[in-house]
Design a protein around this nucleic acid. Structure first.
Lengths: 315, 315
DNA sequence: TAAAAATACTCCATAGGTATTTTAT
DNA sequence: ATAAAATACCTATGGAGTATTTTTA
């Protein structure tokens, strides 16, 4: 009953194993219907080919080829085996191709969350560009709001998220995609338009239309801190989650707003001035659970950055 | 430029080829997530398994397993390769199984012609019995009349045919399935019913209801010859292709008939007496082009004979 | 430090080579 | 008679073995 220390050369029944080689060889012979030509096509000599086919027939217990010196024909079983062998060979190739593609991020499925309010169309652009170039790639972008997104990434409901940082999360990998200056939006003809750039301290008594805390708590918090540092209590008269809606309020004279440059629509009736506090970074990032990196993610990140720089150049 | 006389040892780039072995090994490791256990499951030592996996990863150019001494995990590419590898392995097994089954006649597709007028249900019985037992087997029985059937077998429109013999065809293989005596059908109470058996010479002046020549030219011809040999000119008053219809005429008193025993319905109003000329063989056979034999055909023949003897015993 | 994967090396089974024989039209 | 598959025999690649080292949680 003692456990055998080593395995050591057990004499197996039929020794050799069926291998892809046998499928490849059989396909060649069945297609050429000539051992010599098939051997040439396989870059090998005829005798070992004959032997392998013979071995295959013995292994299957079925004659696959009806042959003599003057013809080679498929038997019924041979025809079936040819069909199946082609399937096996094709599947094997597909396995290799797909796996390599996943390795270089051009195949696979990826679910990413994004905050659709702040997306100006880049997400759809990236999705269609990638899926057009790599048909084996499937991207799913799920719209969510910022806090929901962070939770979804943490619980792996989505593999990654795209939203504004700074983010104070411990176990996320955060890959910065773009940095945008904050600008002050004001109705055309507003007095502050005279200045080249605006300071937070200039906004002390001005009515403001801002994103609510939930839109992005970190940016919200950072802005509040900077207001406090400038010795100003901001007067928020209206909140809205939608940049477009906010610009509506600005144009209507409800108040001024502070927006990341990339969401500005440049609509009539609104003008923009840079915010002097240029050290206020508002960045967009791709983030995911530490260790959850993958070639597909890297491919997505590249494409996102390319698309963003494209927009920046054109815009 | 001269053609190389021998192939001889060209040093290939990456020497070894991808083989089913690699798929099998990877599946084992991916399922166990432990090289040692996987090796045990594969009845081999751990080091060569590690080597083969390493070779596979190098061949694919992708890391499939994220591993160290304390864990083994699938990478994204590894998960994809596992799925594909399982498909390949399953297809390979299926190829072997299906081919073996074709070899023993329990898989494949077979188109057979039969003369439905003379089929008492045996064909459907055999079809359903075989297809129930062997799900990979597909039988198609095509109804045709006798001459059409012979032509269809000759031109390979169908692989085989079932009909009555003798048949004077040169290049058919003809496998007798059953022999049935000819019986004389007469209306109940007919004078000839007094006799134990009927001679053709008894039928000289009797009105007859017979199959037309087209139903089966060989049996028709043989019967004519025997009538002639008996010095009788048969008086055919009605012809019909359907045994059931013929028995209708017999019951109605139109005439007597000569039928193979197996098509007798034993309906009320008709009685049967054996034909004395017992050396008149009417046989049913399976026939096909010489050389077109196959395990499936043999399986069909066995099943047909079993079904026929079953019917004979019960009837 | 202990368990597991990786490395180092050895060996023989077998795929594949060449030369030759058999076979079927 | 000839072309092609089968057989005989040989070689050497590489898959799989054992022993050992490296690694990391």
């Amino acid at each position: 009953m003692g456990k055998q220390a080593t395995i050591s050369h057990l004499p197996l029944g039929s020794s050799a194993q069926l291998d892809l080689r046998h499928f490849r060889y059989f396909i060649a012979v069945a297609e050429e219907l000539h051992f010599g030509r098939a051997a040439r096509r396989l870059h090998m000599a005829q005798p070992p080919l004959s032997q392998q086919i013979k071995w295959l027939e013995e292994e299957l217990g079925v004659r696959l080829l009806d042959r003599n010196t003057h013809y080679v024909r498929l038997t019924e079983a041979g025809a079936v085996f040819l069909k199946e062998a082609r399937r096996v060979a094709a599947n094997a190739e597909r396995a290799v191709r797909l796996t390599r593609q996943v390795g270089e991020g051009t195949a696979g499925r990826l679910v990413v969350g994004f905050v659709s309010q702040f997306d100006g169309g880049i997400v759809s652009m990236v999705k269609s560009a990638l899926e057009r170039e790599y048909p084996e790639l499937e991207l799913q972008f799920t719209p969510m709001d910022t806090l929901e997104l962070v939770e979804a990434v943490r619980t792996a409901r989505v593999r990654a998220g795209i939203c504004g940082v700074p983010m104070d999360e411990e176990d996320f990998t955060i890959e910065r995609l773009a940095r945008a200056p904050l600008v002050v939006a004001m109705p055309e003809g507003h007095a502050l338009g005279e200045r080249e750039a605006i300071r937070l301290s200039d906004l002390g008594s001005v009515p403001l239309v801002l994103f609510p805390r939930t839109a992005n708590p970190w940016i919200y918090g950072m802005l509040r801190e900077r207001f406090a540092a400038a010795g100003v209590v901001p007067r928020v008269v209206q909140e809205s989650l939608s940049p477009f809606s906010i610009e509506g309020f600005v144009a209507a004279g409800t108040g001024l707003s502070i927006l990341p440059a990339w969401v500005c629509s440049h609509r009539r009736g609104v003008m923009y001035r840079p915010l002097k506090e240029s050290e206020l970074p508002v960045e967009v990032a791709l983030f995911y659970l530490r260790g959850n990196d993958s070639p597909v993610l890297r491919r997505l990140r590249e494409q996102l950055m390319a698309a963003i720089s494209e927009c920046t150049v054109r815009g």
